[in-house]
């Protein structure tokens, strides 16, 4: 999910950086004082989870957890993912400095969409429905990220359909796995800290 340095052209990089800057500004504004420790914990999770490779498929893919970040943090997922991606770039050499904006956006935008699409649904009384929605959230976040990356790669000469096919196929196992992870995390959070999920959406 991390695009390397030197692949994208300047207009794509600048657009990514501008969109990310806007998203981070909104995220920082909406981030309450009490919510900061929670953002830190989930940023750490995002940072570390990228090291867990999913050994299925033709290429190197890893867990992302952007669906979970979006669901729990709302707009604060933007600064969280920015910090995570920056440190992954510095310490693990994933992506790069110039692609920081694009890479943050391709992972954070689906997180925000998930927040609006599934944020209310996961508090559903029927636990089966809530679990299904949580799974869909994890799945959809990765699918959308893959499509966004494919969209960025169009401008490099790769055709959208071709790039999208490769990316979506490679990430199919990740989508399923993330769906399961998000479903488990939410079931757990619902049990021990239900106010966390409800409160997030009310505040946003």
């Amino acid at each position: 999910m991390h695009i390397s340095e030197g692949v994208l052209s300047a207009p794509v990089l600048l657009t990514g950086a501008a969109l990310t800057a806007a998203g981070v500004a909104v995220g920082l504004k909406k981030m309450d004082y009490e919510k900061i420790p929670q953002v830190a914990v989930l940023t750490s999770a995002f940072f570390v989870v990228s090291l867990i490779r999913v050994p299925v498929g033709p290429s190197a893919v890893h867990l992302v957890l952007n669906g979970l970040l979006g669901l729990v943090l709302g707009w604060a997922a933007f600064p969280a993912i920015l910090v995570g991606v920056a440190l992954q770039g510095l310490l693990f050499q994933f992506g790069g400095l110039t692609t920081l904006g694009v890479n943050t956006f391709t992972m954070a935008m689906p997180a925000i969409l998930c927040y609006y699409l599934f944020g209310r649904g996961i508090a559903h009384k029927h636990s089966g429905v809530a679990t299904a929605l949580a799974f869909a959230c994890g799945f959809f976040a990765i699918l959308l990220s893959s499509l966004l990356v494919a969209l960025c790669l169009i401008f490099t000469g790769e055709s959208f359909l071709q790039a999208a096919k490769v990316l979506v196929l490679a990430h199919l196992p990740v989508m399923v796995l993330e769906g399961v992870v998000v479903a488990f995390c939410l079931a757990f959070l619902m049990k021990v800290k239900p106010e966390l999920l409800g409160a997030t959406h009310a505040a946003g």
């Binding site: 090291l51 890893h62 693990f92 992506g95 757990f188």
Partner: peptide, 26 residues
């Protein structure tokens, strides 16, 4: 406490994988 326990468990699970870590870079 529960949240922190989960995080700690996650890190403990992730650390043994470090030796066979695969990343996202060619």
């Amino acid at each position: 406490g529960a949240t922190l326990t989960v995080l700690a468990l996650g890190i403990i699970v992730a650390l043994p994988m470090v030796s066979q870590v695969w990343a996202h870079k060619v």
